[in-house]
Simulated assay, not measured.
Amino acid sequence: MKPLVKIALKLLSSPKINMEEDYLWIRKVQRLFSGKPIRSNYRILDRKIYSADKSHDIPVRIFKPAEKKSDEVLLFFHGGGWVIGDINTYTKPCINMADLTGRTVYSVDYRLAPEFPYPAGLEDCYRVADAMLDNLSLIGLTSASQLTLIGDSAGGNLAAAVSLLLRDNRKDYPQKQILLYPITYWDHTENSPYESIRTKGTDYGLTAKKVSEYMDLYQPDREKRKSPYISPLIATDLTRQPNTLILTSENDPLRDEGEAYAKALKNAGNTVRVSRVKESVHGFITYPKISKLVIEAYQQINNFLDEE
């Protein structure tokens, strides 16, 4: 890792940053730096889906690839600890995702904690997936197997939870999911059973302290965090899950719990591929598409998507 990168990560790892107090200004900074993409020929369509109780709209942004390679669709849930990040701050990563996979990407602007704690964000993500599956022809699909769930970090957690909910509530559901350095467990204190919380939890941008603070905002009740829809790793039933690709990051406090989830899925009889991206830190999928880390990740993503 380059010295300047180490310095930058060290600054981002400052214990003075308290997500429970600072999330509002962090949201503002994110929006300030997200901006509009330089490329002028991208196509973005915005749509809205009613929530199940019709109390609010759920914005969905649709990204068309520069060169379409498949009719399949990716349903994307963004990261940010359920607290930060939105449809605008993830516009550039979603453009890259559409272009690098040759598939249309639907990005969900779910409600954020603490204004809307669990299960609000998950309900929005599930509602969009459910509505898309009920209206496959409207999005150009003929089968639920043509829809893949994908998410990074907290979005990976939401994708895993949506997969469980779809299995529990529907006969048809996506046959593939891609979880990028996902949150899968409820405890990120020194009591965590996962070693990466201690060895990678202080100096690499995302800290174990921040993950704990995000969790406090998402679900303040520690006992309720043991729900399989918050902590899929401890679900008692992981059968009948989609074929899964999990990419973890070498220098990420969430690394070990992501890899443990892959093992748990496999032990439950599912088809799982897991890979640790070397020399990477949490959040690398948002880097420019010329980054070697992004190139490596999308090689694995495309290989997975192209499998029958």
Rank of each mutant, 00 (worst) to 15 (best):
P3D: 14
P3G: 09
I7L: 06
L9S: 10
K10G: 12
L11W: 01
L12H: 02
S13V: 01
S14Q: 03
P15G: 07
K16H: 05
E21Q: 08
Y23E: 09
L24W: 01
R27M: 11
V29L: 11
K36M: 10
P37I: 03
I38E: 09
N41R: 00
I49W: 04
Y50K: 11
S51F: 03
D53T: 12
D57Y: 10
D57L: 10
D57M: 09
D57G: 14
R61N: 14
F63N: 12
K64N: 15
A66H: 14
A66T: 15
S70K: 09
D71V: 13
L74D: 12
G79M: 05
G79I: 05
G80P: 09
G80W: 01
I84P: 11
T91V: 12
K92W: 07
P93W: 01
C94D: 13
N96S: 14
M97T: 13
D99S: 10
T104G: 09
V105C: 05
S107I: 02
D109I: 01
D109T: 03
D109L: 00
Y110E: 07
L112C: 06
P114L: 02
F116S: 11
P117A: 05
A120H: 02
G121H: 00
C125L: 00
Y126T: 02
V128A: 01
D134R: 00
D134H: 00
N135C: 03
L136Q: 08
L136T: 09
S137F: 00
I139N: 06
T142K: 04
T142I: 06
S145I: 02
S145A: 11
I150C: 04
I150Q: 02
A154L: 01
A160P: 05
V162C: 05
L165I: 03
R167P: 04
K171T: 13
K171A: 10
Y173D: 04
P174F: 02
P182D: 03
Y185T: 08
H188C: 09
T189M: 03
E190C: 06
E190V: 10
P193F: 04
Y194D: 13
Y194F: 13
E195T: 15
T202H: 09
D203C: 11
L206D: 14
M215N: 14
L217R: 08
Y218W: 05
Y218L: 06
Y218A: 08
D221V: 03
K224P: 03
S227V: 02
S227G: 06
P232M: 01
Q241P: 07
T244P: 07
L245Y: 04
L245S: 06
L245R: 06
I246L: 14
T248S: 13
S249K: 05
S249R: 02
E250C: 11
R255V: 06
D256Y: 01
D256T: 08
E259H: 05
A262G: 15
A262K: 03
N270D: 14
V274W: 07
V274H: 12
K278P: 05
V281L: 09
V281W: 04
G283S: 11
T286M: 10
K289D: 15
I290M: 13
L293Y: 07
V294Y: 05
I295C: 08
Y298Q: 08
Y298P: 10
I301G: 13
I301N: 13
I301S: 10
L305D: 07
